[in-house]
Design a protein around this nucleic acid. Structure first.
Length: 234
DNA sequence: AATTTAGGCAACCGCCTGATG
DNA sequence: GCATCAGGCGGTTGCCTAAAT
């Protein structure tokens, strides 16, 4: 399908924003909100595409943005959530008020990624090797066949199995279903193991996913001693 | 002091999904 | 059901600055 690019090249500015442009965008949004990002720059008198305006507002100009160094607590939160969610930056950002997905992503790539312990886990256990190719995709490539613990589940005192289907032989598991009976919570939940399988609009789904694990953890107060069963579904 | 290198971060790009006509 | 639009996401790029030589 062919689409008109968001930013028509004709006359639209790219690159760093000037303080004047920032001011125009801020005052426009304060007065009118941002109902339609595509129409906004025209109405505000900015020579930018809507996407650029949105990004600038979300990542930099929003009044509730917290700037400056990440605290130790924030670092740890990012590390923990990244173990559970992988590169779902928007989902991680949802747990860190005032921080943007872009900021967290940058922080991860410039600080946390270098730490040896972060190359150990994603959604599956340390028994998986972390290759350069797989880690850059936010996915671990498992050996075959599998019966492993989920690191995220293990963090909550859960264990389970990853059942590989023959159709996916040699490929990383793409989706899991976790059934949980911890004494605090009983139910089933599914999540994607690969950042590639979910396109845009991931935040809500992932947030729900995160809520599930987070609530489970919080209800327990400490890692619950239950059993899980992680089985891949096609 | 001048030049090179590396790190950090803002911004862009391409793709995906849900909504709408 | 199909085509298109708009918003949103993660990956990547490239500029700027500080540190090293």
């Amino acid at each position: 399908m062919t689409r008109t690019p968001c930013c028509e090249k004709m006359g639209l500015k790219k690159g760093p924003w000037t303080p004047e442009e920032d001011q125009i965008l801020i005052s426009y949004i304060q007065r009118h909100g941002h109902g339609n990002w595509r129409a906004l720059p025209k109405q505000a008198g900015l020579l930018r595409c809507g996407k650029s305006c949105r990004l600038r507002w979300i990542n930099y100009l929003r009044p509730d943005i917290k700037r400056g160094k990440f605290s130790k607590e924030e670092e740890e939160t990012i590390l923990k959530l990244h173990q559970i969610l992988g590169n779902r930056w928007s989902a991680i950002a949802a747990r860190l008020p005032g921080r943007t997905d872009n900021e967290i992503k940058n922080f991860w790539h410039t600080h946390l990624k270098k730490r040896p312990e972060t190359c150990r886990v994603r959604h599956v256990s340390a028994s998986y090797s972390c290759t350069q190719a797989s880690s850059s995709k936010g996915v671990l490539v498992p050996p075959m066949p599998q019966s492993v613990e989920s690191s995220s589940a293990t963090n909550f005192g859960l264990t389970g199995k990853v059942l590989m289907s023959t159709a996916n032989e040699g490929l990383p598991p793409r989706r899991y279903v976790a059934t949980v009976d911890s004494g605090f919570h009983h139910g089933a939940h599914s999540y994607d193991a690969s950042g590639e399988t979910l396109g845009g609009h991931r935040a809500n789904k992932i947030s729900e996913e995160m809520e599930f694990w987070y609530d489970l953890f919080m209800k327990a107060g400490q890692p619950p001693q239950g059993h899980g069963n992680l089985g891949q579904i096609a």
